[in-house]
Simulated scan of single mutants.
Amino acid sequence: MAGEHYDIRDERFRSLIHGNAQIDTLWSGGRWAEGPAYFAAGRYLVWSDIPNDRLLRWDEASGAVAVFEQPCRNQNGHTVDQLGRMIACEHRGRCVSRYEIDGSRTILADSYAGKRLNSPNDVVVKSDGSIWFTDPSYGIDSDYEGDAAPMEQDGRHVYCIDPASGAITRVVDDMKQPNGLAFSPDESMLFVADTGRTHFPDCQPKIRRYPLRADGRSLCQGEDFIVCDTGLFDGFRLDSEGNIWASAGDGVHCYAPDSTLLGKILLDEVVANLCFGGPKRNRLFICATTTLRAIYVRARGA
């Protein structure tokens, strides 16, 4: 039954889901599915299968899945900018890159303070064109999702790329392994997940939030916002009302803007990332370890 997919913790969750909506399995056969990004103009979704070093593409009109690029430098997170170009986080490339309209590739960031980045993980574009990304160490920790290499930076941090000058600024330096990130609908807050428990056993699996300063490019001191009760928060998105839809060990967790856990969409695999898509931006596409899933919700992506 469709209702068995839901764990309702707060009555507000009922207004965000369709009780009879099924979870569709659109594709299976991956090792670690990640980085979904929906392209509205073409009605297709691109996502990563990191250990298999490939990008895949799901066509909304036909349901067909094809390899988009292989090898792909062990890409992880993706987003789409205002011009419809794909922004990619590359583990093996140790950079943030952009796919131009003509198909060429531009490296936007591969170092900070003269030292190579670790392995950019997830990325978001702000309305002013600035590009914000996380840089944990997963892609250089082993050869499974990149190339094993020593870390040149003094830690794992969050950065911002200026759209005009290309200058790279470090904006968060108080996290163990910054991972997924997203802005609030009004862009007054940046939310960042910390998956540091993979390397530091005493690190809480949490999402922190950071108020933006008036310049729109720097952050005030952050605070812990929500803590995951099953597994780790990885990638996440906000809907137009400010609710957080976050990946977790048992599915997708939905939190209200006041940090209340409203409910869960339960899956039988660990979820790594998700995004809203479809013509009405009301379909949640979910990268769940070996599969790509989707479910319609009563919310729209911010």
Rank of each mutant, 00 (worst) to 15 (best):
S247Y: 04
C254D: 09
A256L: 03
V252L: 04
H253M: 13
D268F: 09
L262P: 05
D250G: 06
G249I: 08
C275E: 05
T260P: 09
S259N: 14
G263H: 08
L261W: 09
L262K: 04
I244N: 02
N243G: 10
S259T: 13
L274I: 13
A248W: 00
A256K: 01
L267R: 07
V270M: 13
A256W: 04
L262S: 05
A248C: 15
W245G: 00
A272C: 14
L274Q: 07
C254S: 08
P257W: 04
N273M: 02
D258L: 02
P257D: 10
V270F: 11
S247C: 10
G263W: 03
N273V: 12
W245S: 07
A248P: 01
D268W: 05
V252N: 10
L267Q: 09
P257M: 02
P257Y: 00
W245M: 12
S259E: 13
T260M: 11
Y255L: 03
I265Y: 03
D268I: 10
I265F: 03
S247P: 00
D250M: 06
D258I: 08
L267E: 08
W245T: 02
L261I: 06
A246M: 01
A248V: 06
K264C: 14
G251W: 01
D258F: 07
N243D: 14
